[in-house]
Amino acid sequence: MIDAIIFAITIVLPNLFLMGLGFFMKKRGEVSQTFIDQASYFVFNYCLPALLFFSVVDSEVDYAKQITLIAAGILITFILFIGAELYAKRFVSDPADQGVFVQGIFRSNMAIIGLATVANAYGEKGLSIGAVYMGIVTILFNILAVITLSRVSKSAEDTWTSRTLMVVKKLFTNPLILALLAAFAYKALPLPPITGVIHTTGDLLAAVALPLALICAGASIDLKSMFRLSGLSMQASIGRIVIAPIVAIVVGLSFGLTGVHMGVLFLMVASPTAAASYVMAKAMGGNDVLAANILAFTTVVGLFSMAIGAALLRVFGLM
């Protein structure tokens, strides 16, 4: 039991420390909002793509064996999405709140919190598996997010055709998805290994990705928003930090997952609400205040639920 607790603390505590550093620096005025925005852009467009590309290209993971893991992740996403949609239709009256509520439950922060925790737990092997999982499920996240948020639009120009085009545009301009597609193509072709200056540069960019992303996430935390929870934001937060991890464990066990695969599934699903949920809610006319409250609360509290779940799974030898 002690070993399991130490394992859980080890994989979560570095993330908390880096986020705490970002929060501390923002409070002291050592970083500005401009820096946070620019650094986040740099991480998303350059550092994370480099991390994902080289983690896939350098790995010896048999990606055909990840089909069960990816299928479990897709099923979990649909269970959370459909469950949240049914709940929202019955208990959430304002259309501007419904999509934000649903997105806050099914869409997890895989690219930053999820990948960082997986890397802490399993190193390069886990990172490679997590990158593949993230690439596939991110596509589904974007499609479902547009579907659930589109209900608030009153524009005559906003049709299912325009929404479909928006989803396609988002997918094929997403640097993370493009990096993964490029990595899969490189591995599939009879090309020589990437070495020398190119690989060294990629490694340096990749090394920056997760630490800087976590510092920016911490600097973006708004404690006033976090503790200004309405009944609706608390319900969505419970769905993300309690219901989602439980669904992940149940589905993972039903698919027979253990070890690294169960660990990757749990940590990816149990991650806090994705930062992109706030951006997309604001862009599509949803309740951005509600989105910010859910994001802030789950970002902090969700890490503790991840630690508890990881400790329990470790006790039973499942991850």
Rank of each mutant, 00 (worst) to 15 (best):
T200C: 06
Y186V: 03
L313N: 05
I143C: 14
S40R: 12
Y63Q: 09
A248N: 08
L267S: 03
L257G: 07
L205F: 15
S225E: 14
V100C: 04
L16W: 04
A275K: 10
F304W: 07
A131Q: 06
A39W: 08
V269M: 12
L115E: 10
M134G: 02
I241G: 09
L303G: 08
K26T: 08
G302Q: 03
M262G: 10
I76C: 07
E157M: 12
L18W: 03
M280G: 03
G83Y: 00
Y46S: 11
A39G: 09
I6F: 10
C216M: 14
A50F: 04
T273Y: 07
I136Q: 00
A64V: 04
A121L: 01
D222I: 01
V247Q: 11
S305I: 07
A291V: 09
V269Y: 07
G83E: 00
V43M: 09
P190T: 08
D288Q: 12
L140Y: 02
I67F: 14
L265Y: 04
L18I: 02
G259V: 11
L176R: 01
Q66N: 14
I243P: 02
L303V: 09
I113P: 04
V146R: 10
L210E: 10
N174K: 05
L212M: 15
L13G: 12
G231H: 06
A8R: 01
A72W: 03
F17R: 01
E124N: 15
P245Q: 01
